[in-house]
């Protein structure tokens, strides 16, 4: 952990070398999420509710998913850009260092400019919480916290799968973005609105619903099942297949160039 902070400090130092670029990136990230928010705002202005979910409730969902995604992007960015790491031989360097390779990939990229997106999601979340008094109790607070953590884990696992598949293809596989970027987009609305089969898919295959839909039912009082609070923890199981893909890929690693 101490080593991670050291990486953290050196990344911060590097990225602050280019102050203007750094600030512009943060601003850009902020604005791009903001446009997504505006889109949602106008939709809800017109339709007032989606499948029985009110504007407030959808917004809660939106904020949690965005926050989880930007956290994952901030810290698991190394997996997202893993194909370049293989391509330019950076991964060879990682393999000759006496630390776990996943730790090193994680630590090799920390993207501070994603703070723009993070702050924005945090801001929306706080506004929703302040405006919704029924969330002001311990169990609902815990639920929101677990949703964010669970979401970060699921998105990170998706990035890990993406990286693991790079071992087989050397190049990145864009189709995984359907689940990462796509997951973020889908996840802005409660997953039930897309129909039963999609919900099942996002429950059992790519468990976005475990940290988004089911806890949301509890949060909004649609269900009294207290077990739903801990559903986001279940989504952590998704890390196992992701790790397995990574390990299998690592064994096949061929390296590139001279």
């Amino acid at each position: 952990m101490k080593l991670y902070w050291k990486y953290f400090a050196i990344h911060l130092k590097s990225q602050l070398q280019y102050k203007v670029s750094f600030l512009l990136m943060i601003l850009g990230q902020f604005l791009s999420t903001f446009s997504a928010f505006i889109g949602l705002y106008f939709m809800m202005q017109r339709f007032h509710q989606v499948e029985g979910f009110s504007y407030q409730e959808v917004l809660l969902c939106f904020a949690v998913v965005s926050l989880a995604f930007s956290l994952a992007e901030c810290f698991a960015r190394g997996f997202d850009t893993f194909s370049t790491m293989i391509g330019n031989g950076e991964f060879d360097r990682i393999l000759v260092r006496p630390r776990h390779e996943i730790f090193q990939v994680l630590a090799s990229k920390i993207e501070f400019s994603r703070i723009g997106r993070l702050l924005q999601s945090l801001f929306i979340l706080l506004v929703v919480i302040i405006k919704t008094p029924y969330l002001w109790c311990f169990d609902k607070g815990l639920t929101i916290l677990l949703m964010i953590l669970g979401g970060t884990v699921v998105f990170s696992a998706l990035f890990l799968i993406y990286a693991g598949l790079c071992f087989f293809t050397t190049d990145g596989l864009e189709f995984i973005n359907i689940f990462t970027d796509g997951g973020r987009e889908f996840g802005r609305y409660p997953l039930s609105i897309y129909g039963d089969s999609i919900l099942k898919f996002f429950t059992y295959i790519v468990p976005l619903a475990l940290f988004q839909y089911y806890p949301l039912l509890y949060l909004t009082g649609r269900s009294n099942q207290p077990l739903y609070i801990f559903f986001p923890c279940l989504s952590g199981l998704f890390l196992f297949p992701a790790y397995l893909i990574w390990k299998t890929g690592l064994k096949r690693y061929q390296s590139t160039g001279s």
Binding site: I10, K13, S14
Partner: peptide
């Protein structure tokens, strides 16, 4: 690797060294 660098591009070399100290314990 003569063709690949292991130093951090934007920070003083001594910082790269100090990170290596921690990596290798």
């Amino acid at each position: 690797f003569g063709q690949r660098s292991q130093l951090w591009w934007d920070v003083p070399v001594i910082d790269s060294f100090s990170l290596l100290q921690d990596i290798y314990d």
